[in-house]
Design a protein around this nucleic acid. Structure first.
Lengths: 227, 227
DNA sequence: GATTGTGAAACCATTCACAGCC
DNA sequence: GGCTGTGAATGGTTTCACAATC
């Protein structure tokens, strides 16, 4: 039944949707058409009941006795995550990290086309990285307005992070993904996700030390706000 | 009192320890000596009661009416995370991502010295990245044995990830941090953390779409196992 | 007066177990 | 027979609220 499904998807479920999506995309690339909750659970390292509960929040899209249709699930999850249309992204910082993000190809392939790459270093401006021309940071307002960019990625050294975030916000982005090691402050209404690459290492060394099955999910600054 | 403290720290708490550590290190660099749970909560975007409960798991290290001593807390958290000694790390893949990880400086400064960087590409072997010489992937067994490396970082394209993980494991590492977009399979006893850089973007676009204060922590493959 | 530490209450997430359906 | 969907049971986490302490 589940009409216009109860807009009450558990937060924990939402945080797992990207994982399901990754798994399903992988399956589809291998030509798999149908899948059971058991299989998804195994690939994700979690338990099948959880998978079924999670997916049931999206609606009753499985077939009892059979399983789920991969492509349909992909569509539903993408819609829920807002990935049924593209979210153009601007990256600030054309150093190794910026280049790695572009080179990984993971963004564009997943509906996050990188429509701009800017740097403050005049020497880099104008050069090509992949098929992208490096722009100057002063071009941000134009870029963001003309391409309807909502999300900015900060890939600069810590010292410059706050300045870059400020410029992104005044140019109009409303979400920021920050790879710099220093968290940035933002006004109410803007959401930030702080990515801490070393944080994962800390959890791993905890695991090494205690030699226990203690591998919880990582924390992340939930510094965001309602409209 | 909390003698040899109850080894029963909640998993959710453990996952937040890296965040507290980052905040405290930042404070200490600004010359701050004492801090209240309120201040930490504000910097972390969470609530003060949670901070106090979390920190109380480590022992009663605060002073009522005053607050916490930053440096002492840092010491205790580092000990709990196993960061009171160094965890040498090997990075496989000298591409942009490998270089970005080295260049960020975040690893070494936080007790994760990068003691080796290897690649399969003969053309890269021998070149210098920062102060590190790129070695050949065949040197892994030596490197890992001689430097007591427990953690390996996979920073290669997806197609090579499984092969690299296998070689790391047979060379002796027991934890793997995987930046490749494809999850890797590992035998029982080895723990893996899958890092998905695009996952954060997905959560951000969810936020953009629903314009709600829904910013949960990200999921991560908890594919790990007891000894 | 300020702030911690912590039971108890409220809340949320996971797991169980089985009815319902193919 | 096999697998989903879900209410009910369980277990874990967050928040409240206040006594204890400086």
């Amino acid at each position: 039944m589940a009409e216009r499904s109860r807009r009450k998807i558990a937060e924990a479920t939402i945080s797992r949707l990207p994982m399901y999506l990754r798994i399903l995309l992988e399956l589809t690339e291998s030509g798999v058409v149908g899948v059971s909750s058991e299989k998804i659970a195994e690939m994700g390292g979690i338990n099948a009941a959880k998978v079924r509960k999670d997916l049931s929040y999206l609606g009753s899209y499985g077939t009892r006795g059979v399983g789920y249709e991969v492509s349909f699930l992909i569509f539903q999850i993408q819609r829920e995550l807002g990935v049924d249309h593209e979210w153009p992204v601007v990256i600030v910082g054309a150093g190794n990290l910026g280049q790695a993000l572009i080179g990984s190809g993971g963004f564009g392939r997943r509906s996050y086309p990188i429509v701009g790459l800017v740097d403050i270093d005049e020497a880099k401006v104008g050069s090509l990285i992949g098929s992208l021309r490096v722009g100057h940071i002063d071009e941000l307002p134009n870029l963001i307005a003309s391409q309807q960019v909502a999300i900015g990625v900060v890939a600069v050294p810590g010292a410059a992070a706050q300045m870059v975030a400020d410029r992104l916000i005044s140019a109009g982005v409303t979400s920021i993904l920050n790879f710099a090691p220093i968290p940035v402050n933002v006004p109410t209404g803007i959401s930030v996700r702080q990515v801490d690459l070393a944080c994962e290492l800390q959890i791993l060394s905890f695991h090494e030390q205690h030699k226990k099955k203690v591998v919880p999910w990582p924390q992340v600054l939930p510094k965001s706000v309602s409209a």
